[in-house]
């Protein structure tokens, strides 16, 4: 495997909550790699540990065992400051809820992401890609859910992160809007070449991914590379 193919490497990852009788193993030794620029989908039912895995990859949750190496850097070696710097430099986050700042307009919300990068993307161009250029001076509460999620994606992508972590980005959206968002993520992936790791419980989405990891009870059940992926537009569920 080349370095590009081992851009993200997870080895023997373990995580549990609680202690003693109430101890619950959430991740029971995960091993996988993600290549640079890959669109990776983490699938699994509720409680399978996919969100926990995403949080650990995002450096906002700790591990009990195993290691994570991103572009040669071990996450375990980083103190809190370095983790913040790591997130600032390399990561973009998209959540199911958009978590926008209510009294900043669309453009300003995206600027909160741009501010974190020394070399951000051009905001106006991004706004056009996001289909939000006309809405750039609107406040979040003047937008639909889909539009708000676009803003949230814009905020995450504007700093052109190496990895874009998406936690159920379509979870609160209807079918059409979900498809629009998936198309957008696809477009972003293609245009900017970010590695995308998306948590979802929607099995259909795996069809558009380069790489599909299925989790159940904290273990990887399948780790497949998708050789016949389709576009987001073609997805149906």
């Amino acid at each position: 495997m080349t370095d590009t193919e081992k851009f993200l490497e997870v080895r023997g990852l373990q995580k549990s909550f609680g202690s003693g009788d109430t101890r619950q193993d959430v991740l029971r030794g995960l091993d996988f790699t993600v290549a640079k620029g890959e669109f990776c989908v983490l699938l699994g039912p509720s409680g399978s540990g996919k969100s926990t895995l995403l949080n650990i990859l995002g450096g906002i949750d700790s591990v009990d065992g195993g290691e994570i190496i991103i572009d040669g850097d071990k996450l375990a070696d980083m103190d809190e400051k370095s983790l913040t710097r790591y997130r600032r430099k390399h990561l973009g986050y998209v959540f199911q809820m958009y978590n926008l700042i209510p009294n900043l307009n669309v453009k300003e919300n995206i600027e909160t992401g741009a501010y974190l990068s020394d070399d951000p993307l051009d905001i106006d161009e991004l706004l056009k890609i996001l289909g939000l250029f006309e809405h750039r001076y609107k406040l979040p509460n003047q937008l639909s859910g889909g539009q708000q999620q676009r803003v949230s994606i814009g905020r995450a992508i504007v700093k052109n992160p190496d990895i874009l972590l998406c936690d159920e980005p379509t979870g609160a959206l209807d079918y059409n809007t979900s498809k629009e968002i998936l198309q957008l993520i696809e477009e972003v992936n293609q245009k900017y070449g970010n590695t995308i790791i998306m948590v979802t419980h929607n099995e259909a989405i795996k069809l558009m991914a380069d790489h599909v990891i299925k989790l159940r009870d904290g273990r990887i059940r399948h780790d497949d590379r998708n050789t016949s992926k389709i576009t987001a537009k073609e997805l149906e569920w």
């Binding site: 700042i101 009294n103 900043l104 300003e108 919300n109 600027e111 909160t112 741009a114 501010y115 990068s117 020394d118 070399d119 951000p120 993307l121 051009d122 905001i123 106006d124 161009e125 052109n160 245009k191 900017y192």
Partner: peptide, 18 residues
């Protein structure tokens, strides 16, 4: 094809006024 922009001033500062 990727157009780069300038790093904006901290939007949170503007938020104080808002």
């Amino acid at each position: 094809t990727i157009k780069r922009g300038k790093r904006p001033k901290n939007p949170l500062n503007r938020r104080i006024w808002k």
